[in-house]
Design a protein around this nucleic acid. Structure first.
Lengths: 344, 344
DNA sequence: AAAAAAGAAGTAATCGTTTACACTGACTTG
DNA sequence: CAAGTCAGTGTAAACGATTACTTCTTTTTT
């Protein structure tokens, strides 16, 4: 039988008594604030070790007002893009001895607001957010509470907060140019909802690239950034535009949907259609042919996001930072490439 | 300029003053413990609403000893299997007004221990854990602290805690039998590390199924449950055993590695090799041919896990539960199937 | 109708820390 | 050498909730 009596939680008083000092001194040793005589410091430290004392964070939080805890709120935690970012965030926060509170807004504005409220209740030092909506009102309450927000991936354009994102326009533009250089003239684009900044910008990049070829007519179908939406958008696009010879898909889940559609229509990659996806996901190399993709530095993005947020927490008045990371095109075999003449 | 003066945090005292009652009464209304006169209750409620009062959780936690917070510690949060489970957990916890603290042990025993310690420091009401190691000592400290653990997916066999997992033996057995029924005699198996209970059990299921065919010789290669490991194991297996006509891969990331290997060796699916994977991941339907898989109810597994843990938290002395969920085989086209005679 | 029990609300102690303030003795300084 | 600093420590008051106890009122019981 396990003894259910709790073995008396060890508090700062126990440590103080054992070391023969006051609780104030113990606290000073722990937080190494002020200076404390070296002998005492050692006595306190050994007392802490011998007792296996661990400070109560709730009391610390209550008294000092400080928290070592940040909230991470994503629009879709099942999207492997966010998962990878999340892994980066987790890694950095853990090393900094911060706890990570996770929330999922499921692309739903109402849930997002509730989750933010929950973060405030729980008491977080800051929030990493991939926002669902482009309006700044949604975040007013958090900002008034003085909790810093770091916008990741999706950046509401009228919100003055730190942010980290990729150069979406350039990324889509480069991918499109790659297809143009391979000789494609009829390039389709499967985009996402306009309310999401990344979706809007990627479409812009596609359009910019297309402007360079004369008489080009953009062929765009918008999905919902999910697999089923990608499938449907691709079916629509391919049915309405038989002359399409290349396709750029603006996120990874929709790319999976596009693949389903392409296979269903028995169109061959890359011979009958060239395909470029977004995000270098684990499965990209397992496809036949392997997929050419716009690779985003997802893991690093997470690490940097966490670092930026902690910087902001420790330094609330420093100037706002908007970090943009570069993507790079990973050329595999889904565009053929090697057997076409790039200079034609 | 935003007024940086914090607008005086509203406490239970403010509410009490506004409603003309004592703080005790306010507390009673909030926690609707004891009975309180209906007039007062209403007065307090309206005061709360008008002031926009939200209780301070740190103070609540400190005084009452209760927490609405659970820790989730996974071995690999980048594995989409866990991601999906995580989404289920998140959904349930959020609805129950619990916060989710996330940790990633990265298949590393030392990190796992540190993360558990961090959970204890942070103060969680319970922990959902996919353990890295099969030894119960790793978890002694948590158990002694009286924090309930719920083992998910991987269940250390000498640890007496609630658990939820799938019937791994049966799952692998059914998948193998499917291949046998299709006429395959030389079926390879790509497994995972023996220290992981799921890996061990799936191998067992494979072996059990194989016993039914006379003169069968198991062909097994073990990987690390990651993509690169799956690739290498498959290369090894296919190189050493040219007669293999079917392959069962014991987890989703290794399946991606296996696909790379198979494509690299220019072996055709399903004509030259039949393939069955574990976990019905989004990309399974996007492959050509679509992949036959053992489908695990990942999302529900997460929801049930969260429910079981909260049950345990609210009812510490109820008997331990070991829940096993059934999988089902999703037959697609990666085993051919339709053009082979199952009765040959 | 007096005594006992129950019900409703308030008072103040408490949870485990940090920290403002007070105190001590030693060291500078003019 | 008196007075002013200063570094090092202790005392006790916070932080914002819950809750054991007390107090007062009302109801029940005999």
């Amino acid at each position: 039988m396990i003894n259910k009596e709790s073995p008396h939680k060890i508090t700062v008083h126990d440590v103080a008594k054992k070391a023969g000092v006051s609780t104030a001194t113990v606290s000073r040793v722990i937080n190494n604030s002020d200076t404390v005589n070296n002998d005492l410091r050692i006595r306190v430290q050994t007392a802490i070790n011998e007792l296996g004392y661990r400070p109560n964070r709730a009391a610390y939080h209550l008294r000092s007002g400080k928290v070592k805890r940040v909230g991470v709120l994503f629009a879709d935690i099942r999207n492997p893009f966010f998962t990878s970012v999340l892994a980066g965030i987790e890694n950095y926060l853990h090393q900094a001895d911060y706890a990570l509170i996770l929330g999922n807004s499921d692309e739903n504005q109402k849930i997002e607001r509730m989750q933010l409220q929950a973060f405030l209740d729980e008491g977080v030092a800051g929030i990493i957010l991939s926002s669902v909506v482009n309006s700044s009102e949604q975040y007013q309450q958090v900002i008034e509470a003085g909790i810093p927000i770091l916008a990741i991936d999706r950046v509401p354009d009228n919100l003055k907060v730190d942010s980290i994102s990729i150069n979406n326009i350039k990324a889509a533009k480069e991918a499109t140019e790659h297809l143009i250089n391979l000789g494609h003239k009829d390039i389709g684009f499967i985009g996402g909802p306009e309310r999401i900044s990344t979706a809007k910008l990627r479409k812009l990049g596609y359009l910019e690239a297309l402007e360079k070829i004369p008489n080009s007519k953009p062929t765009i179908e918008l999905g919902d950034f999910a697999q089923a939406g990608g499938y449907q958008a691709t079916i629509n696009l391919l049915s309405a535009h038989k002359d399409i010879s290349a396709l750029l898909v603006a996120n990874n889940l929709m790319t999976l949907g596009a693949l389903e559609a392409i296979h269903e229509k028995k169109i061959l990659i890359p011979d009958q259609i060239a395909l470029v996806g977004f995000d270098d996901m684990p499965w990209a190399t397992s496809l036949q042919p392997p997929l050419t993709v716009v690779s985003q530095p997802t893991y690093d993005m997470g690490k940097i996001a966490a670092r930026l947020l902690l910087d902001r927490i420790h330094n609330p008045d420093s100037p706002i930072q908007q970090v943009t990371l570069e993507t790079h095109l990973v050329v595999r075999e889904s565009c053929g490439g090697l057997n076409r003449d790039p200079f034609q």
